[in-house]
Computed example of a mutant assay.
Amino acid sequence: MSNGLTRFLGDTPGRTILKLLVASFVVGVVMAAFNWYPIDVWYWVRDFVARLWENGFAALGRFGTYLALGAAVVIPVFIVMRLISFRR
């Protein structure tokens, strides 16, 4: 049992707990220094995904606008050129 647990944790359980406690303390000090809270991190991630979602659809909208503007010129020119070459 201990061998499997040690292999899973990457070290002995006692040393792993000690490493986790030290890492938690250091991260806690840094977060307190910047006045960050775990819920703030969650809000940042949520807002980032929301902005990415909105901007992604805005980019698709701009793509559609550019496509329509170009098609308003290209398609009539194409039809006129086809009609001219059809008469020959």
Rank of each mutant, 00 (worst) to 15 (best):
G4E: 15
M81C: 03
M1D: 00
P38Y: 03
P38K: 07
V22F: 10
G56F: 10
L18F: 03
V27M: 11
D11M: 09
A71P: 05
V73L: 14
P76D: 11
A58K: 04
G10R: 04
V74P: 04
V45I: 11
F57W: 12
V73H: 07
N3Q: 07
Y37V: 08
T65A: 13
V41W: 04
Y37H: 13
A59Y: 02
D11N: 09
V27S: 05
L21T: 14
V77D: 04
A71S: 15
T6E: 15
R82K: 03
M1W: 00
K19D: 10
T65F: 12
T65Q: 11
F8R: 11
G64K: 09
I39H: 14
F57G: 11
P13T: 12
G61A: 12
L60I: 11
T16I: 03
T16Y: 13
D11G: 09
G56A: 08
Y43E: 15
G4A: 15
F25V: 03
R88C: 01
V74S: 08
V26L: 12
N55W: 09
W44D: 09
F57D: 08
Y66P: 00
Y43M: 11
W36K: 03
N55K: 08
R15D: 06
V77Y: 05
A32C: 02
P76C: 09
Y37W: 09
G28S: 03
F63Y: 09
G61R: 10
R15L: 04
R82G: 00
L67I: 00
N3R: 06
I17S: 09
V26M: 03
F78L: 11
L21G: 08
A71D: 12
V30W: 02
M31W: 01
A50C: 00
F57P: 02
S85T: 10
A23C: 07
F34W: 14
N55H: 07
Y66W: 04
D47C: 01
S2P: 07
F8G: 02
W44L: 06
S2R: 14
F57E: 10
G28D: 00
A23K: 14
R82Q: 02
L18Y: 03
K19L: 08
L5K: 14
S85M: 08
